[in-house]
């Protein structure tokens, strides 16, 4: 970082024609850069910013035939409708509980796995375990949901065959609402635990090995070294990752849940995005109403990210924004 700064300073001492002269001259001098930037800028304008005008239909009773300009303005009615509907509390509860599951059952696992990988003496063994545990991260949710389907189905799935052999019963993992949250969290654990270690392994690699040697000389055992050297070294990373997760707690993995939700488990499975898709596009075309729901989610999400960033900075880490 300081090296690049030094380089920049050095560069600014050299004569730089574009810097001198009027703004227009600088723009003309960079005409090739603008040409190169043009497709990318157009993309952001057309595909990231233009749709934001569409948010205005959240305050309308949008009618595609009348168009955006002709539709009736109804103020905050879509929002109040949503807040007063039972769907609102249901969506919030489902999202919240999934986030809690994630926090308690998934979040600690990459840390534990990273600590274990870090303690393995054999470099080759460590590499092999990393290769195997990173792999699920690259499989799509469709593939993971499909693997789950063929393994957990009551009609010849391997898991149910084993359970049946042991207990004489079969469990309807895929349709019973009782298992839904466990299945979702289990999939996340399977897919992301290995990959999640990367950030912690990086933090661990920053620990000065001399500290361990010194502790060893002082007679500290493995647990003592873990408590007084290793954990403090990754504490900042853990806090940052935790805050990051809180900032995104509304962002339940949409694709994943969409694939696992069905009419039988919808009561516990429906989250904001699946609700928006179903009510807005799939079944009812309630475009204005679902835009309002999406906007509520975006705004709350934004506020959460900013809060999380403030907390992260206050707690001494570099923040997430």
């Amino acid at each position: 970082m300081s090296q690049t700064r030094a380089k920049e300073r050095l560069a600014s001492m050299l004569p730089q024609p574009p810097r001198i002269g009027s703004l227009w001259k600088r723009i003309a001098a960079n005409k090739w850069l603008y040409l190169l930037a043009l497709p990318g800028v157009l993309y952001f304008v057309l595909f990231r910013y233009t749709p934001m005008w569409g948010l205005l239909i959240a305050f309308q009773k949008y009618n595609a035939a009348l168009g955006f300009l002709g539709s009736e303005w109804i103020g905050l009615k879509n929002f109040t409708d949503f807040f007063s509907s039972p769907d609102f509390t249901n969506l919030f509860r489902n999202t919240f509980i999934l986030a809690i599951y994630n926090l308690f059952f998934f979040f600690p696992l990459p840390i534990v796995l990273a600590l274990m990988l870090n303690s393995v003496r054999s470099y080759r063994y460590k590499r092999i375990v990393q290769t195997v545990t990173y792999m699920p991260h690259f499989l799509s949710w469709v593939i993971i949901a499909s693997i789950c389907q063929v393994m957990f189905t009551t009609e010849g799935g391997i898991i149910n065959d084993i359970i049946f052999a042991l207990s004489g019963k079969k469990l309807d993992f895929l349709t019973n609402p009782r298992f839904f949250r466990g299945m979702i969290t289990g999939q996340v654990i399977w897919r992301e635990t290995g990959w999640g270690t990367i950030i912690f392994l990086a933090a661990l690699s920053g620990v000065d090995p001399q500290l361990y040697d010194a502790a060893h000389v002082d007679g500290a055992n493995g647990w003592q070294r873990l408590w007084s050297i290793t954990l403090p070294a990754i504490f900042g990373t853990i806090i940052t990752m935790l805050i990051l997760r809180l900032g995104h707690f509304l962002d339940t993995g949409f694709s994943q849940i969409f694939l696992m939700v069905n009419p039988l488990n919808r009561d516990v499975g429906e989250v904001f995005d699946t609700y928006i898709y179903r009510q807005g596009i799939k079944e009812y075309s309630k475009l204005s109403y679902t835009t309002a729901v999406g906007m509520f989610k975006s705004v709350v999400g934004l506020a959460l990210v900013f809060c999380a960033d403030r907390i992260a900075k206050k707690s001494g880490s570099s923040g997430i924004l």
């Binding site: 934001m52 928006i276 679902t290 999400g301 924004l321």
Partner: peptide, 8 residues
């Protein structure tokens, strides 16, 4: 950190 969302 912010996008228009699915429907827009």
């Amino acid at each position: 950190v912010f996008s228009a969302g699915m429907i827009p």
